[in-house]
Amino acid sequence: MSIQHFRVALIPFFAAFCLPVFAHPETLVKVKDAEDQLGARVGYIELDLNSGKILESFRPEERFPMMSTFKVLLCGAVLSRVDAGQEQLGRRIHYSQNDLVEYSPVTEKHLTDGMTVRELCSAAITMSDNTAANLLLTTIGGPKELTAFLHNMGDHVTRLDRWEPELNEAIPNDERDTTMPAAMATTLRKLLTGELLTLASRQQLIDWMEADKVAGPLLRSALPAGWFIADKSGAGERGSRGIIAALGPDGKPSRIVVIYTTGSQATMDERNRQIAEIGASLIKHW
Results as ranks from 00 to 15, higher is better:
His24Ser: 15
Pro25Ser: 10
Glu26Ala: 13
Thr27Tyr: 02
Gln37Ser: 14
Gln37Arg: 15
Leu38Met: 12
Leu38Ile: 09
Ala40Ile: 05
Ala40His: 03
Arg41Glu: 05
Arg41Ser: 10
Val42Thr: 06
Ile45Trp: 00
Glu46Trp: 04
Glu46Tyr: 08
Glu46Ile: 08
Leu47Arg: 04
Leu49Thr: 08
Leu49Gly: 06
Asn50His: 14
Ser51Arg: 08
Gly52Pro: 05
Lys53Ala: 14
Lys53Glu: 14
Ile54Ala: 10
Ser57Lys: 11
Arg59Leu: 03
Pro60Lys: 12
Pro60Asp: 15
Glu61Gly: 13
Glu62Phe: 07
Phe64Gln: 01
Pro65Trp: 00
Met66Lys: 03
Met67Ala: 13
Ser68Pro: 01
Phe70Gln: 06
Lys71Ser: 00
Lys71Asp: 00
Val72Asn: 03
Leu74Cys: 05
Val78Met: 09
Arg81Trp: 06
Arg81Asp: 05
Val82Ile: 12
Ala84His: 14
Ala84Cys: 09
Ala84Met: 13
Gly85Met: 10
Gly85Tyr: 08
Gln86Lys: 15
Gln86Val: 15
Leu89Thr: 06
Gly90Ala: 13
Arg92Ile: 14
Ile93Ser: 04
His94Pro: 08
Ser96Arg: 13
Ser96Met: 15
Gln97Tyr: 12
Asn98Gly: 13
Asp99Arg: 07
Leu100Val: 13
Leu100Ile: 13
Val101Cys: 09
Pro105His: 06
Val106Trp: 08
Val106Ser: 09
Thr107Phe: 00
Glu108His: 12
Lys109Ala: 13
His110Ser: 10
His110Trp: 09
Thr112Val: 13
Gly114Met: 01
Met115Leu: 11
Met115Arg: 05
Met115Tyr: 03
Met115Cys: 05
Thr116Asp: 08
Thr116Leu: 08
Thr116Met: 08
Leu120Gly: 03
Ser122Asn: 14
Ala123Thr: 06
Ala123Cys: 07
Thr126Leu: 08
Asp129Arg: 00
Thr131Ala: 11
Ala132Glu: 02
Ala132Met: 01
Leu135His: 04
Leu136Val: 08
Leu137Val: 08
Leu137Met: 11
Thr139Trp: 06
Gly141Glu: 07
Lys144Ser: 12
Glu145Thr: 11
Leu146Val: 10
Leu146Phe: 11
Asn152Asp: 14
His156Phe: 15
Val157Ser: 12
Leu160Thr: 09
Asp161Gly: 01
Pro165Gly: 06
Asn168Val: 05
Glu169Lys: 12
Ala170Met: 08
Ala170Pro: 09
Ala170Thr: 08
Ala170Gln: 07
Asp174Ala: 04
Arg176Ser: 08
Arg176Ala: 08
Thr178Trp: 02
Thr179Met: 06
Thr179Leu: 03
Ala182Trp: 12
Thr187Trp: 05
Leu188Lys: 03
Leu188Pro: 01
Arg189Lys: 15
Arg189Trp: 13
Arg189Tyr: 13
Arg189Ala: 13
Lys190Asp: 15
Leu191Ser: 02
Glu195Met: 09
Glu195Ile: 08
Leu196Phe: 13
Leu199Lys: 15
Leu199Asn: 11
Ala200His: 12
Ser201Asp: 04
Gln203Gly: 10
Gln203His: 09
Gln204Arg: 11
Leu205Phe: 06
Ile206Trp: 10
Met209Gln: 02
Glu210His: 10
Asp212Ile: 05
Val214Asn: 07
Ala215Pro: 05
Gly216Glu: 07
Leu218Gly: 04
Leu219Ala: 03
Leu219Val: 10
Ser221Asp: 09
Ser221Val: 12
Ala225Ile: 10
Gly226Glu: 10
Gly226Lys: 10
Trp227Cys: 03
Ala235Val: 07
Glu237Arg: 14
Arg238Gln: 13
Ala245Arg: 02
Ala246Asn: 06
Leu247Asp: 03
Pro249Ala: 09
Asp250Asn: 15
Gly251His: 12
Gly251Trp: 08
Ser254Phe: 09
Ser254Trp: 10
Tyr260Ala: 03
Thr261Ile: 15
Thr262Lys: 09
Gly263His: 06
Ser264Glu: 06
Ser264Val: 06
Ala266Gly: 13
Ala266Met: 15
Thr267Arg: 11
Thr267Met: 10
Asp269Pro: 11
Asp269Trp: 10
Asp269Leu: 11
Glu270Asn: 11
Asn272Thr: 09
Gln274Glu: 14
Gln274His: 13
Ile275Met: 10
Ala276Ser: 12
Ile278Val: 10
Ala280Ile: 13
Ser281Val: 13
His285Ala: 09
